[in-house]
Design a protein around this nucleic acid. Structure first.
Lengths: 177, 177
DNA sequence: CGATATATGTCAACAAGGCTGACATATTTT
DNA sequence: AAAATATGTCAGCCTTGTTGACATATATCG
């Protein structure tokens, strides 16, 4: 009992490892994979003076044309003030247009323009290519496994959001146990 | 020929879909999966007034005890000024200690303390649990497929970095292509 | 030994993209 | 008419990244 322990400043020289009961391999792979995955579109975005926030907005407006501001906020899980800045820029640059909701005219339905659609595609293309290459390396028959795993990593209560994207209720049912 | 087209402000009402030749499914799954994955440790970090930057530093110092500042910068791909702020906080709070390099005394070798090790484990635990649950849902025999896919998503020139982490040159060789 | 190169630290300014709080406006609902 | 809702906007703050400039200690080169 030398009397300290929990705030002992001594350096620990042994590496944290699998022996500690933590899945370090996949934690780290996920970190590096996502970093490179998101780095793909950065160059394209920089050309328009945009960042990743613009990318996300543009992506979901293209995926769900006509969605309202409130719906977009719910998908992105950010505040309206955060959204306002990037959305304004996307509107000012002619990538997105707003139309008053047909039923409720307080709402603003968001749609991409030709330009917005073109940019969304340009941004998605290198990511899609990266995925295709990875799938090829892994074996294309493993596609469903990869999809199942990624979906299982999402919070259960948020998986509904994914299923509601267009063309989604495809291979992977939400109730296939 | 009504004469415009590329800056036509008309709203596009059709959703971007798989028909556009883009792997939207995995792009979106990756986005949602990573968002939830990184949200796990946030509560724990907030208790110490830390953010994700601290998490990353702490993780790699625990994984590679004794690494130098320059090596850490290379792993994280940030500038030394960015690192300095969070590293200083981790040192001041007794999570990390610095020792002069034994060969080159200009270097500062970074080590976790007991406290730093404990925090790193606490942060990794919920992530590991999420992975374990996802793997269970997917089928535990699919683990290798998932690892292969994630690794294939990383830029080829950066995969060496992963292989150099302790206990790594395991199941998935870097030259098994 | 002296000059130069290297590893690290630090100061200052700036930007992106989050956040909160407060308040304005239009529209719908009660 | 009053209250609730959808959106917009102003102001200020935080974290985490950036660049540029410069200081210090130590190592290496000639």
């Amino acid at each position: 009992m030398s009397g300290k322990d929990e705030h002992d400043p001594a350096p620990i020289r042994t590496a944290l490892s699998r022996a500690d009961g933590i899945d370090l391999d996949i934690i780290e792979l996920f970190f590096f994979a996502y970093r490179d995955f998101t780095s793909d579109p950065d160059q394209i975005l920089a050309a328009d003076g945009f960042g990743r926030a613009h990318h996300r907005v543009l992506h979901f407006v293209n995926r769900m044309p006509g969605l309202t501001v409130a719906e977009l906020l719910d998908v992105l899980k950010i505040t309206k003030q955060s959204l306002a800045r990037v959305l304004k820029q996307l509107i000012d640059t002619g990538h997105i247009v707003q139309l008053p909701g047909p039923r409720d005219r307080r709402q603003r339905e968001l749609y991409p323009t030709q330009r917005g659609r073109a940019l969304a595609l340009a941004l998605a293309r290198p990511q899609s290519r990266r995925i295709d290459a990875a799938l090829k390396e892994t074996g294309r028959d493993k596609r469903e496994t990869v999809e199942r795993f990624l979906k299982a990593m999402v919070n259960p209560d948020l998986r509904a959001q994914i299923d509601n994207l267009p063309g989604r209720p495809g291979i992977l049912g939400s109730d296939d146990g």
